[in-house]
């Protein structure tokens, strides 16, 4: 009996020794994990800081109010940031209503049949198509078949196609989080399906949808390849016609057909030049793009965090 106990104790000691040995691996792995994350963060931080310091001498007010020029020191991003803004207006107006509508349909209306399966497969597939393919689609379809030319409208529609899956997925996820009893309560007092959607489902999923919209817009700002593919010009020293007129009806839509350039294309153009001075401009443009997208994404992430924290059904 005592012998047996002693043996058990010995075994136990052995097991403990074994566990101790393996715990060392725990420590080593945790160290490697932290090291990798820290070195990645530091590497990227160095890259970002380097970009900011390279571009810093150019980042003045004039940089935003000057057209691109053959003289690097006088060149600015006026046409690029105005072009980006106008393109984004089109993208926003197309992608947001359409994305929300599609998301609402798939979550609230779609019956389980072949059609909704087909739509689902397509939505998830579109998210995986490389952005340059959308550029080719737009080149063949919008530029030549529809005859829209290499215009702000074409670029806006192209980026809208890219943004659509993002908005759809965000809409669906936040709608799915709304419990059924909210809908049942509304139906019980006689609301129609659309009234339920418009007065309850969409307002309650507003935060999540907004998050998706902002993330999608930030992505659209940085997208370069599809906009180059449709043939956007890289050197633009004019502005599109103003969307707001001085006479009635105060709005005109000539700007939709105007040629344009956008921030990332301007940056790409300056990187491609051999002279160092233009690389400074590229770095400054890069800094503007990064600050813009980081602010938008940061706001979206914070918004999502707040929404998750606030809403408790």
């Amino acid at each position: 009996m005592a012998e047996n106990n002693a043996k058990q104790l010995k075994d136990l000691d052995q097991i403990r020794a074994l566990i101790q040995k393996h715990k060392k691996n725990d420590f080593i792995f945790a160290f490697i994990g932290m090291f990798i994350i820290a070195s990645l963060t530091i590497t990227l931080l160095i890259l970002f800081l380097d970009l900011f310091f390279d571009g810093y001498p150019r980042l003045g007010l004039e940089f935003f109010s000057n057209y691109p020029s053959r003289k690097a020191i006088q060149a600015g991003i006026l046409s690029a940031w105005i072009g980006s803004s106008l393109v984004l207006i089109v993208t926003f107006l197309v992608a947001v209503p359409m994305g929300i509508a599609a998301g609402v349909y798939l979550e609230e209306y779609a019956k389980k049949n072949w059609l909704s399966d087909l739509i689902e497969i397509n939505v998830s597939n579109l998210a995986g198509v490389p952005s340059i393919i959308y550029g080719l689609l737009a080149l063949g379809l919008f530029v030549y078949s529809f005859g829209l030319g290499q215009s702000i409208l074409t670029a806006g529609l192209t980026l809208a196609l890219l943004m659509l899956p993002v908005v759809i997925v965000a809409t669906r996820e936040s709608i799915r989080a709304i419990p059924v009893h909210i809908r049942e309560a509304a139906f019980a007092v006689g609301a129609t399906k659309w009234q339920v959607v418009l007065n309850h489902v969409i307002p309650y999923s507003y935060g999540g949808i907004l998050t998706g919209v902002i993330i999608g817009m930030a992505r659209a700002i940085g997208e370069t390849a599809p906009v180059i593919t449709i043939g956007a010009l890289t050197f633009i020293a004019f502005l599109p016609p103003s969307p707001i007129g001085t006479e009635a009806p105060f709005l005109n839509f000539d700007w939709l057909q105007s040629g344009f350039t956008v921030l990332p294309i301007q940056m790409f153009n300056w990187i491609s030049r051999p002279q160092y001075e233009f690389h400074v401009n590229a770095a400054a443009t890069g800094a503007v793009i990064i600050v813009l997208t980081a602010l938008m994404n940061g706001f979206a992430i914070k918004l999502r965090y707040d929404v998750r924290k606030k809403i408790k059904w």
Partner: peptide, 29 residues
């Protein structure tokens, strides 16, 4: 009105199918 709205939403959702078809059509043609 309910039917019209449902149809409009369906069209928006089906647009995804249209985009895929258009991509394949444009590239192949």
């Amino acid at each position: 009105i309910e039917r019209i709205i449902e149809f409009g939403l369906l069209i928006s959702a089906a647009f995804a199918v249209f985009i895929t078809t258009a991509i394949v059509y444009v590239l192949v043609s």
